[in-house]
Nucleic acid binder design. Structure first.
Lengths: 211, 211
DNA sequence: GTCTATATACGGATAGAC
DNA sequence: GTCTATCCGTATATAGAC
């Protein structure tokens, strides 16, 4: 149960880390069921026995990967949401920029989380307890005040969340189709996403005042 | 190669249809790799031998299901996009309403398509050729004109597609998390989606004029 | 058409040598 | 810690009886 004292992360060439990186890559791209322990071992340049030696089972290894992904996602928003020195608009800008940066580097995360979580409701999600986290946030309070004062059109706060998440995350989830539809190369797609860092906050502002 | 002459669809109790329905349900919910032919057989109330008798292999069966899903998706938009008697705004309204209705009844389709398609780029997608389909559409022409005339802010048309798709589809893809965050029951979630049928067109209009 | 029984392969995990 | 060899359950697919 002793917590592991681990280093700067980036340059850890230990076998354990090699396996974890290989697992993260494959699980994230192909999902739990489609990823074989043999593939992970091959990708990591070791064999299955060693995988089980370090992580005991495929499922335990998977849980670790999933948890890490969830944390990086929650972390990206927690920093922003509870900054008491920023306005609602500034929070939206920071939020959008943070996630787009994150997703440009790791575009497979959302689809991975969403599809795996659907089938294994895992207590993990309950434990992270995004709900209370959100309700108590500075962002949420500011949103309520803005609606009260009539600065933005009153609506169910979930609409607000769905809108931002949809505008930010969906393009990455649908990138294969979108790149096909637009005949885009990877770099062109990323350029569009960079544009969205500026555009989405403007759009969201307009939406919230609409009607 | 003879095309099958098939009936009204809804009430087909043939063994072949029973298997297909079972397969559709399971593949859509759990994906290709996590779905076992045994499960499909059990769900259909038959055995594996019969499944292979009708469809030859798991993969062939899967391809049929995937194709049907893709077609229902393309169809839902083709009707709307090429109606020469409607304005751009009317098309957006119809488009949003059609998809939300479709997704309320079959909420698992998008996640299924998006995650399975990522790994098996299947020529299917290329064949449906959504691209040309879109570029030649009446909707696309109207969009171009509106930007030319300055009625809406010029932007890459893909932004427009991503925005609508994100606003409409994402809530369904993320529904498990969203329902948790908002402590919603299924019916409450659906009620929000019905609200969005009215709201999204208003929002989109505001977005397109922003900045 | 539909079933039971079975062939064959694959995947997760462990034993035990080094 | 790391490997090879292997066990054993599971999964797809087929053979062949009815």
């Amino acid at each position: 149960m002793a917590a592991k004292k681990k280093q700067p992360v980036t340059t850890d060439h230990s076998t354990e880390e090699k396996i974890k990186r290989a697992a993260k890559k494959l699980f994230t791209q192909k999902g739990y069921a489609a990823t074989k322990t043999r593939d992970i071992a091959a990708e990591a340049g070791i064999n299955i026995a060693l995988l089980n030696y370090y992580f005991r089972s495929k499922e335990k290894l998977f849980d670790i990967i999933m948890l890490e992904h969830l944390q990086s996602f929650v972390q990206a928003m927690s920093v922003v949401m509870n900054d008491n020195d920023t306005t609602l608009e500034q929070k939206i800008e920071a939020f959008v920029a943070n996630y787009i940066d994150l997703l440009i580097h790791q575009p497979d995360i959302p689809l991975f989380i969403l599809s795996e979580l659907r089938q294994h409701p895992k207590e993990l999600v309950a434990k992270l307890d995004i709900r209370k986290f959100l309700l108590n946030s500075s962002l949420f309070k500011q949103l309520g005040e803005a609606m009260q004062s009539g600065k933005i059109t009153p609506m169910h706060p979930l609409h607000f969340i769905m809108n931002i998440a949809g505008l930010v995350v969906f393009p990455f989830v649908g990138s294969p189709i979108l790149m096909n539809v637009g005949s885009l190369k990877q770099k062109e797609f990323e350029a569009l996403m960079m544009e969205r860092k500026k555009l989405i906050p403007v759009w969201v502002k307009a939406m919230m005042k609409a009607k």
